[in-house]
Structure formats: structure tokens, C-alpha cells
Design a protein around this nucleic acid. Structure first.
Length: 581
DNA sequence: GCCGTTTTCGGCCCGACTGTTTTCAGTCG
């Protein structure tokens, strides 16, 4: 059994919550920090535990001897004795209960002590019975808020996909354009960094009249429910997504935008970079504190150097502006200081799509319709890669060998009248052993062969995927891990090995831009690019509108530091033809 | 429980908001 990093991290977070509920000091924070670093650790922590034991695991940042021992214990035995004891002492469904807005570990602990509340059902019936407001420290408002929060917590434990959060943020920004009190506004937070899933939407507005902006926010047509509102910040629920607004004065907009975009790790590293240069950076600006004795004496201590724009904020530290997608403290500050920031691929660089479907398999549009949609986007070419039959794709959806050849002929006929170059192709299935579901002589007849895993999507997939990229007919490895956000984790993959094999074989690795997939993810793109392999940003579109997903794919590739030269479909048609041959 | 050009013990980010509290605790980002 493989133990995933996020599984270990979740256990450590439960540890933290249980300790916090018991009013233990400082340890909860230690467990949470360790959990974050375990979750972000680039390799399998379980493998590390098995191969190098406690000393290896304690090499992870913020993981010391005690937590390392617990991780090893979990990997070896499947449980942690001390966590089991804590669970017995406080037998509550911690994750579910803290999912209620406004309910944290301490509240859970107190309600368990006072009322024996263990589950969402318990807390709901206690609230209905009026028992909660009778507990010291709780009142009718809190009880009512819990009651309202329970219903939402039941259905919404998931993180939002970009395809939910991004359009919502655009809608709010457009609305604010018409609000007089708003001078400027911008998305911040993980959405601006284009993380594949979003906890909530953060929007920042510049105004000298915070109350007017908050009032307008409350009247936004998408607002379903007000969560809280003050004079400088407010939160609402809109289409099931939490939207947080902050209002700052225009002079400090850049500082606030930088601060609230994060990531937290990037900001900590940047703060330290500033301190080393006798500067101080926070959400109000960059300050020169070289002449100040106590730089911690206040929020705006020292001589203000920059605050109005983000570029000026970085410029005050002698750094070029760093694109939000790479603000993850993965070396971007050093690269910026050295003048080595990548020239990231842009959406306008994309010249075509190499993984699309038509009504010949499970798409909803004809070859001609998809070609017209590609032309309308200004593309130079489109590959028609309908499903082949095979593991994970049933006959009736996928095409067999004979149907593939007929379909390729129809693509060639359509190409004569199309305003873009058309490549005939297929999305073949990769079997559990790494073989393809289409015969070699059929593959040889097609311009563009995408090979993707559609079945047996768990366990280590490296051997199988390496075999597929080394197949001479394969041009693109489609959605390599097969993950689906909020649904399944997909294959475990040694991306270094896969990237090396792909670079040697001249096969591109896909960033599938479908917002349910985003596979490869940004971190994997970084490894792929570093090892010299080529990336293809494809939408896997099953209808013309899905070609728009390219936005999500490009920003995911940018999270992996991909430049235009790394991206196959940023080349012109001849360049792509040369690669496919 | 973790960590150290504040280094082996003594600290651990912090401000806004809400609700309950008569001066503050819990949650959230």
C-alpha cells in the first residue's frame, strides 16, 4: 500500500486539532507546520520513511525527531499509537465539525466536554434543542450560525475548481468596474497564482471609501449570503464559493496585492530577503529601516520606499516583478536577483491544440465544427484525436482500428476546406502494462498519436508510462497521471524518470487543461522542463467552448516555469509537423 | 514540538471581525 504525502499531512493536522482542542500550547502549530511541509514534499515521504527511517524523515523542514518517529510508525504499522489515544480521549469527527464556518478545534473541544457533541448530527440537534447557547461562552448568535453552517458543511468539503472560481472572480471585477468608489481591483490569493483548486476567491479593491465598496459588494448580484462585513473587509457566499474582499487605500494597493497574493512561503522568503538589506516589507509597503533602531516598532516604521504598485515593491528590493504563478519559494527570488527569471509561456503563444474530440467518439461537434472553432480562436492547426477502444474506453465510444482509418480519411477531406491545418490522430489507451490499444500499422497512418491512461489509475505508473513514451509512434502522453481533482489522485509517477525518457524519445508530455484534471500539475511541469522534455498544453476539448480551457493549461504550465520554447503547440504548424514526424 | 548569525533554552505572526465577555477568546486568512 502506498501512503500519500497528503494522507500523512492530514493525520498531522488532525493531531494538531486534537491537541488544540485540549488547550495544548505551541504543539498544534508545530504539527501544522510539519503537515504543510510533508504535503509539499516533492517525493514520497512514505518511501523516505521506509528507506531512511526517522533520520531521513526528520530532514524535512519543520519535522523533528518526535514527528519523524510518528510518521515512520504510521508507514510501518498503519497507525500512530498516540493519535489513537487522543482520538479516544476526544472521540469527535474533527474534520467534519471544523468544516463548519466559525467552528474551530477549541469550539469542538468545549462542545464535546459540555454536551458530548461528536458528529455533525450531534451538533445540529444540540443547536436545534437550544443546548449550545446554554454553554458558557456561547450565545444565541453562535448557535444560529452553527445551525446555518452545518447544512453548508455537509455538501461543501471540496475545494473549488478554477472553472468555478475564475469566472466568478471575473464577474466581480467587472461589477466593481462600474462602482464609483472602486479605483482599482484585482484578484489575489491562490486564484491569482492559478493553483488547480481554490479554497476561496480573494479580491482586493483600492478605495478611499471602504464602506461604500463593502456596501456595493453586499449588493453584488451573485451574493447569496453575507458571512461577515466590516469597513475594510467582508466575505460573502456566491454560487457556493466563499468570496473575500479587502479594501485598501489606493496608495498601498501594490503592497496589499503583493501581500495577499502570497504564497505565504514566498512572502516569508521575500521578507527575509528584505531584512538582509535593511529593508522591511509588509502589506503596507517596503520601508527603509536602516536608520531605525526598532524596525518592529510599528506597521509603517522607516522611510517608505514603495507601496503603490507591485512592480515598485519588487523594484524597491532591486528585483524584477515576479509572475504570481511562480511565487512559491521554489527559487524564484534567487532567479530574480540573478536576472534568470524565465520568460513564461503566454496564452497568446499557443498556436493550436493537439488533443481534441469530435462526435465520432464522445465529443459533441463535427470535425468541421471543431476546425471552425479553432480557426475562430486564431489557431494555425488542430489535431483531431478521437478515442480508440481499449481499457477504460468502451466500444461505441471509442473507435476500433478500421474505424480509425476511416475517420482519419474524413479528417483529411475536411482539411481541404478548413481554415486551419488539421492533423489526423487518435487518443489511444495505455494498458496496465504500458502497451497501446491500437495496432502499430494503424498508428503509422496517423499524424498525431496521443496515448493516455484511462484504466488502472492507481499505484505506481512510472514503468507503464515510460513504455508508452518510448513507443515510436507516440507523440504526446495525454493526462499522464489520470488524476481528477476532488475525485481521484491518479497514478504515482517518478517524474524525473518519465521526463528523461520523454526527452530521449522525443515525446511531449501533456498539460491537460481540463479544469477537472490539470495533469501534469505545475510542480511536475517544473521537473519535466528541467530535464529537457517538451510539454504540450492541450484542452482535450469535447466541444468548441472547451477550447477556452487553454487558459487554465497555460497558467498551469507557467507554474512549472515553462517558457514558450518548452511548449510544442507554441510552435508553428511546420514546427509541429517536424516534431510529429 | 521545533529551531537557532537571537543557538541547546526560550521563544513561537498578526490584524480584522464576531460574539460574548465588562477586557477578551476564537476563528480566519
Amino acid at each position: 500500500m502506498t501512503v500519500r504525502n497528503d494522507e500523512v499531512a492530514t493525520l498531522l493536522e488532525e493531531f494538531a486539532d486534537l491537541l488544540e482542542a485540549k488547550d495544548v500550547e505551541y504543539k498544534p502549530r508545530a504539527y501544522r507546520l510539519a503537515a504543510e511541509n510533508v504535503r509539499d514534499y516533492p517525493e514520497s515521504v512514505a518511501d523516505l520513511a521506509r528507506e531512511e527511517g526517522e533520520s531521513g524523515v526528520s530532514e524535512i523542514n519543520r519535522v523533528g525527531d518526535a514527528i519523524a518517529a510518528k510518521i515512520v510508525e504510521y508507514v510501518e504499522s498503519g497507525e500512530i499509537a498516540e493519535l489513537e489515544e487522543l482520538r479516544e480521549e476526544l472521540p469527535v469527527e474533527m474534520g467534519a465539525l471544523t468544516g463548519i464556518e466559525g467552528v474551530g478545534p477549541k469550539t469542538v473541544g468545549r462542545l464535546y466536554e459540555a454536551l458530548g457533541v461528536r458528529t455533525l448530527e450531534d451538533i445540529e440537534s444540540a443547536a436545534r434543542a437550544g443546548e449550545i447557547q446554554a454553554v458558557k461562552g456561547f450565545g444565541p448568535k453562535t448557535e444560529q450560525n452553527i445551525l446555518e453552517g452545518v447544512a453548508f458543511a455537509r455538501q461543501s468539503t471540496r475545494r473549488q475548481l478554477l472553472s468555478d472560481a475564475y469566472p466568478l472572480s471575473r464577474s466581480l471585477l467587472e461589477y466593481f468596474e462600474g462602482v464609483e468608489a472602486v479605483e482599482r481591483c484585482e484578484t489575489a490569493g491562490s486564484l491569482r497564482r492559478w493553483k488547480p483548486t481554490i479554497g476561496d476567491v480573494d479580491v482586493l479593491a483600492a478605495s478611499d471609501d471602504g464602506e461604500a465598496v463593502v456596501d456595493a459588494f453586499r449588493e453584488w448580484e451573485e451574493t447569496d449570503e453575507l458571512i461577515e462585513a466590516g469597513t475594510s473587509k467582508a466575505s460573502v457566499r456566491a454560487k457556493g464559493v466563499r468570496v473575500d474582499l479587502r479594501v485598501v487605500v489606493p496608495e498601498e494597493f501594490g503592497a496589499a496585492l503583493q501581500y495577499f497574493t502570497g504564497s505565504k512561503d514566498h512572502n516569508i522568503a521575500l521578507r527575509n530577503y528584505a531584512i538582509e538589506r535593511d529593508m522591511k516589507i509588509n502589506e503596507y509597503g517596503v520601508f527603509d529601516v536602516s536608520a531605525i533602531e526598532d524596525a518592529d516598532a510599528g506597521q509603517r516604521v522607516g522611510e517608505l520606499v514603495a507601496s503603490e504598485s507591485e512592480a515598485a515593491m519588487y523594484g524597491a528590493l532591486d528585483l524584477p516583478w515576479i509572475p504570481p504563478e511562480i511565487r512559491e519559494n521554489r527559487g524564484e527570488i534567487a532567479a530574480a536577483a540573478d536576472g534568470d527569471l524565465p520568460d513564461l509561456v503566454a496564452e497568446a503563444d499557443v498556436r493550436g491544440d493537439l488533443h481534441t474530440h469530435t462526435d465520432a467518439s464522445d465529443g459533441r461537434e463535427t470535425i468541421e465544427g471543431m476546425a471552425a472553432a479553432a480557426a475562430e480562436r486564431g489557431y494555425d492547426y488542430l489535431a483531431v484525436t478521437d478515442h480508440a477502444t481499449g481499457p477504460g474506453v468502451v466500444g461505441g465510444v471509442g473507435l476500433d482500428d478500421e474505424e480509425l482509418l476511416t475517420h482519419a480519411e474524413r479528417v483529411r477531406e475536411a482539411a481541404a476546406d478548413a481554415d486551419v491545418a488539421l492533423f489526423s490522430g487518435v487518443e489511444a489507451n495505455i494498458t496496465a502494462d504500458g502497451e497501446l490499444s491500437v495496432s502499430d500499422d494503424v498508428l503509422a497512418e496517423l499524424d498525431c498519436v496521443v496515448a493516455s491512461p484511462h484504466a488502472a489509475l492507481d499505484g505506481d505508473g512510472t514503468d507503464r508510462l515510460v513504455r508508452a513514451v518510448e513507443h515510436p509512434a507516440v507523440d504526446v502522453l495525454g493526462h499522464p497521471t489520470g488524476r481528477q481533482l476532488n475525485r481521484r489522485a491518479g497514478l504515482d509517477v517518478d517524474f524525473e524518470r518519465l521526463a528523461t525518457a520523454a526527452a530521449d524519445a522525443g515525446t511531449a508530455l501533456e498539460v491537460n487543461a481540463n479544469p477537472n484534471r490539470l495533469d501534469l500539475r505545475g510542480g511536475a511541469v517544473g521537473i519535466v522542463v528541467e530535464h529537457g522534455a517538451t510539454v504540450a498544453v492541450n484542452t482535450d476539448a469535447h466541444a468548441p467552448t472547451s477550447l477556452d480551457y487553454v487558459t487554465y493549461g497555460v497558467h498551469t504550465a507557467r507554474r512549472g516555469w515553462a517558457e514558450s520554447a518548452d511548449v510544442l503547440n507554441a510552435r508553428d504548424a511546420d514546427g509541429v509537423r517536424a516534431f510529429l514526424e
